[in-house]
Nucleic acid binder design. Structure first.
Lengths: 374, 374
DNA sequence: CTGAAAGCGCTTACAG
DNA sequence: CTGAAAGCGCTTACAG
């Protein structure tokens, strides 16, 4: 009963068909209340005394409009705060003006920061962002992402690690003719398709920091082997140690999984080695927090007995005690750059030489690193 | 030069006008490559030998279709994996099938969990989620949110705390006839418009936990006064202590800001009181982490010298050392429920008695709480 | 139960 | 530089 009433109300709200167009057009434009109807391109055309096509031209910044005409039309659009209907534009353009953020990443802070960067970049672009977390371990992963893109006719997508490393996915997008930008630690694609974070370079900074402090028994907890970033951090770190005459013996390297528990387990192994390492570089902050726990349980103090360095500068890093020396990624910038490039691609405005967008993380020294115990 | 070429290519990709419709319809439906054109309602109609209106009816689950007809049409839609074009539907329905997530919340984990809950709920609903962080301290806040909703013709929005507590915003949405759901700690709106988290109840559990452990010098670091959740936690906690014959003296209450630093500062004050409290309830985990820091600096050990309890069960809670006793909110569920209710509202299927959706956080006891020192 | 016509608000293709 | 016509893929309003 109640339901019927409501549904009838819904009907009633739809604008009457035969209403004279003129009757619903006022320059002020706002009839108060729910019934307010947005201005259309026809209203603007009538108000400006031009055809709707001309309005369309100024909307799309066509050069073939006389300056006076453009000014008049623009002014009226301003006055009634007209914005073209995205659905109608989308239908006519056969595009959605939607871009997707596709990810499978456990790091909430990373996601939110990327989102903010992206949203900042698309603010006045006419595009909107739809988010799409997914599960790359699912059997239907690829089909599912493709169906998402097709269903919404997305104009483009931004891919975050680790799924940004998936070559099959990138191939599929290319085949669908869907523009994309991959956020990566290694150049797995044409420069114009990626935003590159120089993890290798940052890992090098960590190595130099430890070397300068005088450590020579340095251990490493890596990321999971499936992640390119893990490999970059490992090899960048190892190479830089070598440059300083230091080695990274196999007993001082354990494989982690970017999780707290794996950091804890890894540290338990490393701290039972003899001689014990004086410094541990955990390839992310989660694992570094696990190292703290293992150290405390063994009665070791950070940093006087053990130096610990993390990676990410997550909120955790400055909240644990002692505060963690770590690497900060400009995540928000990465989101912004990815969005800017994506929109440029969609609009075919890449410019003549689409070079790689490279972004440099840097070391943030806090209280968890000091000289090795005497 | 390059740009011109590309732009011409874009043109070329648009389907030829005069192409015979039959020529582009195959039951398999997938011409490989970029030129693949999605099936339209006309294709399905032709294939099924019915009018497009009938296809539209089965699409919208109208009861006025013969079962045999419906089956045939459905089967064909399945076979060619037809999905209606969201832009076209949106234009004809005068709706966008988009729902917005509007928030101004520093807690990334909260946002991401809500998002996941929402996305899970709308998965097969035909709706898509667009996220919209905003700044409630901005002078143009209200206008900005309204313009976002109008521009995208959102069907509805989900409001997260603290902006969900903004009565002016809710009023504005009501005036715009925009459906909304507010995630709240207090019933500031009609039951059908809110998802209610019983913070008061959870704070009570914390008080009972501390009372049972035998604490009688219990201190509190509140949230910022602008937050309703802060008030609920405070009064729920205080009331429950009273029920156990305990008091919360003014010297044992300091105002926090839900930040690490404010937790640290608050704890420094509390730990300099005489007699010193044996337990501190920090109204979120961030502040609890700040309490840890203050305790360590004072040479106090958690929990043997000082019991600490937080709120949120953020990732931080299980990663700091010792692991933090805290309150877990079913955030993901809250997102799911909010989305389900919102869609029901949009579709006017609320049912006869739209009651409040209430969600109960619960205490998670870990290692930071124990009996008071002898 | 089913369909032909007109329309949603924008665009492209063509003609001037 | 400007406009009238037709179309994007779907719906509503009406008629049978």
């Amino acid at each position: 009963m109640a339901a019927r009433t409501t549904s009838r109300k819904t009907r009633a709200r739809a604008p009457a068909r035969g209403a004279s167009p003129a009757s619903r057009t006022t320059v002020e434009g706002t009839r108060v209340g729910a019934a307010t109807r947005k201005h259309t391109i026809n209203d603007i055309a009538r108000l400006a005394n031009v055809s709707k096509k001309t309005v369309s031209r100024v909307l799309n910044e066509s050069p073939f409009v006389r300056e006076a005409t453009r000014a008049r039309v623009s002014e009226i659009m301003q006055k009634v705060s007209y914005t073209p209907d995205p659905q109608a534009r989308g239908l006519a353009f056969r595009r959605s003006f939607l871009i997707g953020l596709v990810y499978d990443n456990p790091n909430a802070q990373y996601i939110v920061n990327i989102q903010e960067g992206v949203l900042g970049a698309i603010r006045r672009s006419g595009y909107e962002l739809v988010v799409h977390p997914c599960d790359r371990t699912s059997a239907t992963f690829l089909a599912e992402v493709k169906s998402f893109i097709n269903r919404q006719k997305l104009d483009g997508v931004i891919l975050l690690p680790p799924i940004s490393e998936d070559q099959a996915l990138a191939r599929a997008l290319k085949e669908m003719n869907c523009s994309y930008i991959r956020v990566l630690a290694v150049p797995l694609d044409e420069p114009s398709n990626i935003v590159l974070a120089m993890d290798r370079d940052a890992a090098r900074q960590v190595a130099e920091h430890l070397a300068k402090l005088g450590h020579n028994r340095i251990a490493l907890i890596t990321g999971p082997p499936g992640y390119r970033s893990a490999h970059e951090r490992l090899s960048g770190f190892s190479d830089a140690l070598g440059d300083h005459g230091l080695t990274l013996p196999a007993e001082y390297v354990v494989e982690g999984a970017y999780t707290f528990d794996s950091g804890f387990a890894g540290a338990e192994i490393l701290l039972s080695r003899f001689p014990r390492p004086t410094a541990i570089f955990a390839c992310n902050d989660e694992m570094a927090a696990g190292v703290y726990k293992a150290a405390y349980l063994k009665g070791l103090r950070v940093p006087s007995d053990l130096t610990v360095v993390g990676y990410d500068d997550s909120p955790l890093a400055s909240r644990i005690w002692p505060s963690l020396t770590t690497v900060r990624l400009p995540i928000r910038d990465m989101g912004r750059i990815a969005a800017e490039r994506l929109i440029a691609k969609i609009q075919r405005l890449e410019g003549p030489a689409p070079s790689a967008s490279t972004v440099f993380p840097h070391l943030v020294v806090r209280d968890s690193s000091t000289r090795p115990p005497a």
